[in-house]
Amino acid sequence: MSVDVRIDQGRLHRFLRLRGGRAYRKMQERTERVARIAEAEAPGRMGRTITWRVIETGRGLQGVVECHHRAARYVLEGTRPHIIRPRRKRVLRFEVGGREVFAALVRHPGTRANNFLGRALRRGR
């Protein structure tokens, strides 16, 4: 007794990779779900800068979720204590407790990392 297995490469490719294929649609659903969770987890207005897409690589399909906010790296990785100095003016101006404050420099205590993208990935699986 023998078994003959034939793989239709065209059908397999359509199933796995081409837009509209089942695997592609599943990857789209998962990637979008992760992006929506990341938008909700992101601080402030950072969630508005999150985009997602599915790409084909040499190894298969890949879902990509990106945050394009200019401070995303500092939020994701956190910051060490640092000094903030004015760039264009002589003093910094900001509000503390509803009062306007002027200072030549500010000793920022740093921020703890907030890896909202990693949390979204773990929750969106």
Rank of each mutant, 00 (worst) to 15 (best):
M1Q: 09
D4R: 12
V5Y: 11
I7E: 14
I7T: 14
Q9K: 14
Q9W: 05
G10N: 15
R11P: 09
L12A: 12
L12G: 07
L12R: 13
R14P: 10
F15R: 14
F15E: 11
L16M: 11
R17I: 15
R19Q: 07
G20R: 09
G20W: 07
A23E: 04
A23G: 05
R25Q: 07
K26P: 01
K26L: 06
K26E: 06
Q28S: 03
E29L: 09
R30N: 02
R30Y: 02
R30I: 01
R30C: 01
T31Q: 01
T31G: 00
T31W: 00
E32G: 09
E32V: 13
R33M: 01
V34Q: 00
V34M: 00
A35I: 00
A35S: 00
R36V: 01
I37R: 00
I37A: 01
A40G: 04
E41T: 02
A42F: 13
P43N: 07
P43C: 06
P43I: 07
G44W: 08
R45V: 12
M46Q: 05
M46E: 03
M46N: 05
G47Y: 01
G47C: 03
T49F: 15
T49M: 12
T49L: 13
W52D: 00
R53D: 04
R53W: 04
V54T: 04
V54M: 06
V54E: 04
V54S: 03
I55L: 01
G58K: 07
R59I: 05
R59W: 06
G60P: 03
L61V: 10
Q62H: 06
Q62E: 07
G63K: 01
G63L: 03
V64W: 06
V64K: 11
C67Q: 07
H68M: 04
R70T: 08
A71K: 06
A71C: 05
A71V: 11
A72C: 01
A72M: 02
A72S: 02
A72L: 02
Y74H: 04
Y74G: 03
V75Y: 00
L76K: 09
E77K: 08
G78P: 11
T79G: 06
R80E: 14
R80A: 14
P81A: 13
H82W: 11
H82F: 12
I84H: 13
I84V: 15
P86S: 10
P86N: 05
K89Y: 15
R90V: 03
V91I: 05
L92R: 10
L92V: 12
F94R: 02
F94S: 02
E95G: 09
E95M: 07
E95Y: 03
E95D: 08
V96T: 11
G97A: 13
G97Q: 15
G97I: 13
G97S: 14
G98Q: 02
R99E: 03
E100R: 10
E100W: 09
E100C: 05
E100L: 09
E100N: 08
V101R: 12
V101C: 11
V101E: 08
A103C: 08
A104T: 12
V106N: 13
V106C: 14
R107G: 12
H108P: 05
P109M: 08
T111M: 13
T111Q: 10
T111N: 14
R112H: 05
A113V: 15
A113T: 15
A113Q: 15
N114E: 08
N114G: 11
N114A: 11
N115T: 11
L117Q: 01
G118Y: 02
G118Q: 04
G118T: 03
R119Q: 05
R119H: 04
